[in-house]
Amino acid sequence: MIPPAGAPLVLRGREVGRDADGVLRPVVMAIVNRTTDSFYAPARLADDGAALDAAHAAWTDGAAILDVGGVRAGTGPAVSESEEIERVVPFVAKVRAELPDLLLSVDTWRAGVARAAIEAGADLINDTWAGHDPGLVEVAGAAGVGVVCSHTGGALPRTDPYRVSYPTPEGADGGDPRDGVTRDVLATLRAAADRAVACGVPPSSVLVDPTHDFGKNTWHSLHLLRRTDALTALGYPVLMALSRKDFVGETLDLPPDDRLAGTLAATALAAWHGARVFRSHDVAATRQALEMVAAVRDEAPPRVAQRGLA
């Protein structure tokens, strides 16, 4: 049985991923990190020219959304709010001017950065630190832009998990005892999405992200991938930020440079179960993986079908 397709996503009145035949398809969110210390070296695009070239390449390769970040997610040198704005906001304005059809997301946990980015043209605020600044979602709601609701298990911004655990669900007999993390993620995302809607974010502009690796160990992240169906059942479009992450690397014992195959396997599994948006360092490869899944799900025909017919 083919799992149901995920919920649609609409940003500033534009439905994301509807193809020419009216079929809703998963989309790629490309990554541009305006930093010098991102965990994956090719994504370090502090230089304005290189970053703008990467944005154009992402659009050419089929990305529907570009996610721009100004601060490394993990531990590292402090970055002030004003410095984050300087790294991100002028670049967002340039991309908006040069690529008006590319939807723009800004990865930040700070309401001040979100406000400045929206004024520059951002369509989506990717709050990867689960509402650490409660004013951020209010800024997004007031502007009518989209917001990503995430889960970190209570971790503070730019901290790494340490011996994190989630209680085994009561009555686990007959259920999966590993679903403690699933229940915590679902409860957190449901509450965050409800608050976003209450603050004025359109329901179809709310994305939910289980946020693999953040406040989780590799076992947790693998189990959440296994339970993608529970995430899509929340009724909001699901964002999967899987690209070259540590849970992929630890599963396969590989460094970031060698994690593409594992990432694409995880991507295909999540897409089969209805995840809507895939944040990726590798746009073309991810796009191809999603097209293959769409064909298997009978949502799109092969581009060319000649074998045995001609």
Rank of each mutant, 00 (worst) to 15 (best):
M1Y: 06
A7V: 02
P8W: 10
L11Q: 08
D19L: 06
V27K: 00
M29A: 15
A30N: 05
I31P: 05
I31G: 14
I31Q: 02
T36K: 11
T36S: 13
A41I: 11
A43Y: 03
A46V: 14
D53E: 10
A54D: 02
A55K: 10
G62E: 01
G62C: 08
A63R: 07
A64H: 11
I65L: 11
V71P: 06
G74P: 06
A78G: 08
S80P: 09
E83I: 13
I85D: 08
F91N: 00
E98L: 15
P100W: 04
P100L: 07
L102P: 00
A142C: 03
S150K: 02
A155D: 14
A155V: 10
P157E: 00
R163N: 15
G171A: 05
T182P: 00
A191Y: 12
G200K: 10
P203G: 03
V206Q: 10
L207I: 01
N217R: 15
S221M: 05
R226Q: 11
A230V: 12
L231R: 08
L231Q: 07
S243P: 02
F247L: 07
F247V: 06
T251Y: 00
T267N: 01
L269D: 11
L269R: 08
A271M: 04
H273T: 03
R276Q: 13
F278L: 04
S280F: 00
D282H: 13
A284R: 05
E291Y: 04
R297T: 05
